[in-house]
């Protein structure tokens, strides 16, 4: 029993990292109607830049965020300019961003090789530490991921609900024409939001490096799980994304322990299929629309 609880909570904490990855994707899909697979490339860049710069600059893995967040903000915003310029449809955005993703993965591989990379132990004090609650023990990096995810979710939620720009974005996502008729300029806001999703990618990339190794192919390994979270959480639903991440993580953790690890992806994706059948708008509807 205790083993099951440990597995579920550990899984949920890991799931929060994937929720962090899913956040930006969900936002740009929900509000800007692009399905941006290149987001995974941006996360990958975040991870590699952390490994590259954390030591030499003396900033440490978290300090590097000061540099990577603005850089990846710009990268993501530039990618969005491409979608915006060509007014791509949702399906075409999927194709184009797929092209961008393989391109980015290959460039990362050409520069950093296909080998496993990790943060050196001396500048990653988090990897070996853990947090214990009673008899339960959790690795520190996953706890940090959960904290960051929670902070970002709350922050984004506040931004969307409390600021004029945030509410304008919501309005834009709900009715583009009327939003424009009231003076909401989608172009500026869209680039802002795409950039913000790039910033969350930077955070996700850094947190990923705290727990272990990364290879260029890691990006493809994230895709399935992250999209499962986006769909379960409800496209564009910020808090739902976090809940879905925790749920998916807990379920995978549990299944892996009580059954076997090979079945956990099957269970997760069966969940997605069931959700698509019964709750196409996601498991966690925020407010009743219509």
């Amino acid at each position: 029993m205790e083993q099951a609880i440990q597995a579920a909570i550990s899984g949920a904490l890991q799931g929060s990292l994937f929720a962090l990855m899913a956040l930006g994707l969900s936002l740009t899909w929900g509000f800007l109607r692009v399905i941006n697979l290149a987001h995974f490339g941006v996360i990958l860049l975040g991870a590699y830049l952390t490994i590259e710069w954390a030591g030499p600059t003396g900033l440490g893995p978290l300090g590097v965020l000061v540099v990577t967040v603005p850089i990846l903000f710009v990268v993501a915003a530039v990618i969005h300019l491409l979608y915006d310029r060509f007014e791509v449809s949702e399906l075409n955005s999927l194709l184009i961003s797929y092209g961008l993703l393989i391109l980015m993965i290959q460039l990362v591989q050409n520069y950093w090789t296909a080998d496993f990379q990790r943060l050196p132990g001396d500048i990653n004090p988090y990897a070996t530490r853990s947090v214990s609650v009673g008899s339960l023990i959790f690795p520190l990096p996953t706890v940090m991921a959960a904290l960051f995810a929670a902070v970002l979710v709350v922050g984004i939620r506040l931004f969307l609900d409390r600021t004029y720009a945030g509410r304008a974005l919501q309005a834009f996502g709900q009715d583009r024409q009327i939003a424009a008729a009231f003076g909401i300029d989608h172009r500026t806001l869209g680039i802002l939001l795409a950039g913000a999703s790039g910033a969350t990618a930077a955070v996700a990339g850094t947190l990923f490096t705290l727990r272990g190794t990364v290879t260029p192919d890691s990006a493809m390994e994230w895709v399935g799980l992250v999209f499962a979270i986006v769909i379960l959480g409800g496209i564009g639903n910020v808090a739902g994304t976090l809940w879905a991440g925790l749920l998916v993580g807990a379920v995978s953790g549990l299944v892996a322990v009580v059954w076997n690890p090979a079945t956990s992806p099957l269970v997760v994706f069966s969940l997605v299929v069931l959700a698509l059948i019964f709750r196409p708008q996601g498991l966690f509807r925020r407010k009743a629309a219509h």
């Binding site: 009715d175 424009a180 008729a181 407010k287 629309a289 219509h290």
Partner: peptide, 22 residues
């Protein structure tokens, strides 16, 4: 479109079209 409102025009659209989830 997003500049016409500055000229002093506002619309009550057919079917109201409020931002429904807000």
């Amino acid at each position: 479109t997003h500049r016409t409102c500055r000229a002093g025009v506002a619309i009550v659209p057919e079917g109201r079209r409020l931002f429904p989830a807000m």
